[in-house]
Computed example of a mutant assay.
Amino acid sequence: MKIAAIQMVSSPELAHNLERATALVGEAAAAGAELVALPEYFCVMGRHDTDKLAIAETPGSGPIQQRLAELAAKHGIWLIGGTLPLRVDGDADHATNSCLVHGPTGQLVARYDKIHLFRYDDGERRYDEAATLRPGREPVAFEAVGRSGETLRVGLSICYDLRFPELYRALMRPPCDLLVVGAAFTYPTGEAHWELLLRARAVENQCHVLASAQGGRHANGRRTWGHSLVVDPWGRLLGDLAEGEGVVLAEVETRRTTEVRTQLPALQHRVL
């Protein structure tokens, strides 16, 4: 199945971001992608942490969710909608950072709420997601059926989740064929750890990894690392976009996954 990671440099303006996402999803679909993933906060990179609360939607209703459903149906693709903020009942000061997946008819097939909330302070940059977000609790995977009838089990994760291998181990029961990471990695942490961690997740779980990232300088002054990429089960890089908007295309070959797991049956050797 051909897959695509979309890289964006999202702004504080929702309408602008939706139009850019629409164009990039269309580009990926025109290139033959059947599964397309947007980055974390594709819909907004606000000037303040609380800006996301102003556009938070009620689950099942709102212009961001409507656009995702329309794009999936228009192009007949599996669309992993990066993340968007969803309201939390009874708590106006927090939202969930949620990844919604829509199938080829536009139907909602999965929702994953980011479990691990990022906190970072190097004396110059400070982030604390728990100030505005509520964490999720459960790992989420879904099955995507390609036009040829091939089925992929796809595990979902978001940005800081990448540092917690136990989440991906949980997603391997039963094993996934593809792990997806939507992200807005900071430049310093991305430069140090992004590719290293993604390749490790691919190798230890013997599956493909698709990572869709924010990548560039944003209107709020933040610079994100970018390097949206796809890795195969042996840790081989299949595609990488350093910075700026664009699409990374690759093929998920289940034959290759089977070959790796047969030659080196590490998943069968797990003890803990």
Rank of each mutant, 00 (worst) to 15 (best):
G244M: 06
Y127V: 15
Q268V: 03
L86K: 05
S11Q: 08
Q66D: 14
S11T: 15
G90H: 14
A15T: 08
M172S: 13
A4F: 04
A56D: 11
D51F: 01
V271I: 14
V260D: 11
L108D: 06
H102I: 00
I3P: 05
R126Q: 14
A5F: 04
A33D: 13
H193S: 12
E245P: 10
A200W: 08
T254I: 11
L210G: 05
P63L: 08
L117P: 01
L38N: 02
D161R: 06
I3A: 10
T96D: 02
A131T: 14
V180C: 10
M172K: 02
L156I: 10
D51A: 03
L152A: 09
D51G: 05
V145E: 15
L24Y: 01
A4E: 11
Y168T: 03
E243A: 15
R163F: 15
G146I: 01
D89W: 09
V230F: 08
P63C: 04
L167I: 15
V101C: 09
R147H: 13
G106H: 04
F142L: 11
T151I: 11
R256K: 14
L264G: 00
A29N: 02
G190A: 07
V88H: 03
Y160L: 12
N205V: 03
G32N: 06
R119D: 13
R67L: 14
L229D: 02
P139H: 08
R199N: 01
W78G: 02
D49A: 09
R20D: 07
E57T: 04
